[in-house]
Design a protein around this nucleic acid. Structure first.
Lengths: 237, 237
DNA sequence: CGACCAATTTGGTCAGACCAATTTAACGGA
DNA sequence: TCCGTTAAATTGGTCTGACCAAATTGGTCG
């Protein structure tokens, strides 16, 4: 194991990809563990480990007689990243759904953060915003994106909502990884970004949780629009 | 395997519980696979399967030299149900966070469902609401709760947001299971429930997505309040 | 064609072996 | 006594082959 991945993990990834590409329909039986061991030139133990990982993801149900593929929509959120990474470019619908959902969660944590922040946290939010404003609305660099995401993550921390944090763990790392891999960066205009940062600043200064939440919702609505356009023009071009 | 659970799953559950109960701190090394095999009177293979499940949950990181416990807040949402089920009664904060987050997601899907529904779906929503109104605000029965949850799930289906669906898979089944196990049912007054159903009906009839979303948000805010009170009075009593 | 039974296949688990990577212990020198 | 180096021990990663319980498949008979 020199490349940091176990064989069982590699097998699970390969099978997961087969399932996500619908090479098996819901209800179909997977090949037997013995057959998979031959296919992957591995021991049955490694295959069993892989299979139990897929079962935990909700992708299959295992019982004596064979493992059966389950409906995709009954699976865990942890399959989102792999789904997005299936093709060279992600599905427009799925990206939109992700942004919409992620936006709703961030809007919630922003609201709660503004409502709950200690004076110190409040100041730290404003300081971070001031740093973001230095980009003058130009969020296209990796650094700017990273700082913006860190800011959003800080809001989650201040909101102290573990449930959102746990969901975010499954959503964020996977999504960002796949977006970067696909080389796609949705571009908001500098005017839009500047406006959002400015209004967010005012909302936080005024401890106006509703305004802050609205600004974030608007940011994600803009981002959804820009993403859809970017993806569609890539598909046309 | 006569009781529907594999040994590896039982071992994973036991270790997960140890970790969630903070018997190990973040950074601590778990006992070796060989020691765990002795402890659980199992083979090392079964232990390895259990360990790889815990790694997928983000609870541990496995490498030669030993598996290390990871910070809880870096884990997957799939640990929420087990966290809620640790004690006889769930943590007030965690239940509140769950309801807040779940409420935000349902509010989003309600908004989208109202915006997107086909005439047939629209009619089906109204029909389901009419059925719910027959309870005259009395949601205390298992049947009423079940029908209400089915209605909310139908909204998710109509909204066609796979991301929310996948998150819901991790949230819903676990949470409801744990709540029922703890025998706790938060009680909203009949007047509150009737009012919510009535206004939701109007909003859907008018295809007013914002109003529908607001009604759902309000329902969950009331539910959060009632839950906190119910849990706190149980702790006091 | 359907029911029943036997054979085969499948998952569940075990023990023991071996190799690569990490951790711990021991030794020597300053 | 402390630090650095090396060796030994421990740990994870994987394999093979065996056996048992549960499910599936195939064959036979009415």
């Amino acid at each position: 194991m020199s490349k940091g991945h176990t064989l069982s993990h590699d097998i699970a990834v390969a099978l997961r990809t087969d399932i996500l590409r619908q090479r098996y329909q819901s209800g179909d039986r997977l090949p037997s563990e013995r057959d998979l061991a031959v296919r992957f030139s591995a021991s049955r133990g490694a295959v069993r480990e892989a299979i139990s990982q897929l079962e935990q993801l909700g992708l299959i149900q295992v019982q004596p007689g064979g493992a059966r593929v389950q409906p995709l929509e009954a699976a865990s959120i942890a399959i989102l990243g792999p789904m997005l990474g299936l093709d060279e470019q992600p599905s427009v619908d799925l990206v939109d759904q992700f942004l919409q959902t992620f936006g709703a969660l961030v809007s919630l944590t922003t609201r709660e953060a503004v409502a709950k922040a200690t004076p110190e946290e409040h100041q730290r939010m404003l300081t971070a915003l001031a740093e973001l404003k230095k980009y003058r609305g130009d969020f296209s660099s990796t650094e700017a994106q990273s700082n913006w995401l860190q800011f959003l993550e800080y809001l989650t921390t201040v909101s102290n909502n573990l449930v959102v944090k746990l969901i975010g763990n499954d959503l964020r790392a996977q999504f960002i990884g796949q977006m970067l891999k696909s080389g796609m960066k949705p571009a908001l205009s500098k005017a839009t970004v500047s406006s959002i940062l400015k209004r967010l600043d005012v909302a936080i200064k005024d401890s106006d949780k509703n305004a802050a939440s609205r600004v974030i919702t608007e940011y994600f609505d803009e981002l959804r629009l820009a993403s859809s356009q970017a993806l569609e023009s890539r598909q046309a071009g």
